[in-house]
Structure formats: structure tokens, C-alpha cells
Design a binder for these strands. Sequence first.
DNA 1: TACTTTAGGGTAAGTACTTGTAAAAAAGTA
DNA 2: TACTTTTTTACAAGTACTTACCCTAAAGTA
Lengths: 130, 130
Amino acid sequence: MTAVKHSSTLQENKKAAMAECPVTYVMDKIGGHWKPIILFHLLSGAKRYSELRRAIPAITEKMLIQHLKQLEADDIVRRVAQPVVPPYVTYSLTPAGEDLKEVLYAMAYWAFRDVKRKDITVPEIWTREP
Amino acid sequence: MTAVKHSSTLQENKKAAMAECPVTYVMDKIGGHWKPIILFHLLSGAKRYSELRRAIPAITEKMLIQHLKQLEADDIVRRVAQPVVPPYVTYSLTPAGEDLKEVLYAMAYWAFRDVKRKDITVPEIWTREP
DNA sequence: TACTTTAGGGTAAGTACTTGTAAAAAAGTA
DNA sequence: TACTTTTTTACAAGTACTTACCCTAAAGTA
């Protein structure tokens, strides 16, 4: 009974998994390490590119723009550019992006409970609004 | 005005980001491409290692055991081993793991809405219980 | 002309994540 | 002894993700 295993192009597994599981579908869209943070900052309203950069000092410009492009392609954020010089570009959430609020809040709520459960001191930054 | 950039050991950014954002804290724990799937299958009750393997054919044994270990270390799943031969090991959710249900359901719900919004045919697999 | 600001592109290099393959341990059975 | 089953580990190799660094465009201003 020769098992029919390992007939995959490495990334095929992932794709198959995404089609299998709605949760993975979501992770594929907001699953990077930076995307949730970006979205979190956009929850409080439209932001300029430079505002986001300042709000998330740890991110590199490359990552920021790359993820913004992806989020835009996934119809989660909307890019609006004013044709002025210097350029003025704002990013905001689409309806689909707004709907993610519930997911993000559920996550945040779980995180709070988890650190309390573990008796870790809650990082005070968490308690500040984005 | 020499900018004070790039003073990071590559992964320090991530860590800083995690401390900054509860959402990232969650992503760090369930953010792999496989973890959500594993958890999804455990939502319906304790499963044996081999059951999980059969339930998620696309995953390699390496990934499965590795993620299970991580989830165990993060106190999200519980491992119970009966000292018999051949070994009998079951994995189930801890209270913290159970609490993730809300997060996973919020994700699943969003996924449904998103595919409907995009007029993609909902993968019928999504509609089957895990 | 030189310089400023804002939004982004390109490339190379490094790090983390996944996979494939092989194999170990343990107690019983043929 | 050789072989079974189930869970798990080790190692090497490949792929994807991130970072660092440098660079462009455009209009106004000194």
C-alpha cells in the first residue's frame, strides 16, 4: 500500500489549506506580522502614508508600502491620492476592512484575557488608543 | 540631521511590534498557516495525533508536531499521553484555547462575508463541520 | 542651482519558515 | 529475531518573508 504522499509543489499545500478553511483564508489576508498593526491604526480613521510611518516606527518603508499594496489589492484598504506636490496620499478602510474590526477586537480581547491568565503585566501601550 | 534608523537586530522590530499591539500578540500565537487549521479541528473536541494527521492531509508530520508543541508551550492545547504501546496521545484545547473560539468564529464569519461580497463561490468545504 | 518634502521603487542580503527523507522508541507478536 | 504501530525527532535543503540601503519624481523655495 504505497502511500500517495508528497506530490506537492511546496506551496500547493498552503493553497489547498486555504480553500479548506475559512480561518486560513483570513490569515492569508491579514496574517503578516505587520498587517494587523497597520489595520489597527486605520481603525481610527484615514491616515496619510507618512502618518502611518510615524505611528509604526518599527516598520520599514518597504514593508509598509508592500503591505498597503497587498491590502489594497485585497480590497481591505482604499488608497486616495491627491495630485499635488508634494504628494498627498491617504489610506482608509473599505467596507470589508471595516468589517475586520470585529475580528481584530476579538483578538485584542483574547490577548487581554491571555496575559491576565498568565499574570503577565499588560503592556500599557495596549491600553492606549491607536 | 543624521536619522537614527536601522538600529535593530532584524527581529527586534517584530518583538517591539508584538509588545505594542495585542493583535500582533495573537498573531504570534496562532499566526502560522497551519495553526488555525489545527485549532479549528480541535474545536470539535479532543483528537488523537493520527486523527489530526488524517483530518489535515496536506500538512506534513513535521509541521503538525512542531505546531502542536508550540501550541502546547503557549498553553493553548493540552497533550495527554497514555503510557501504552503503541503510544496513545490525544490533543485538546485548554481554557485559553477554548476562548480562541470567538476569534476563530469571527474570522470564519468575515471570510464568508468577504467571499460573498466578491461573488466568489463559497468553497463547499467551509460549510462542513470540522 | 541646490535643497526641501512626500510617496514610493529596486536590489541584494539576511532570517525565518516549511518541506523531504530517514529514523528512533516502546511493547507485543509471529 | 524481525516486524508491527503510533508518536516523535534530526538533519539537510528549499522557499518565503524582511530588512538595509540607495534611488527617483515633482513643484516650490532660498
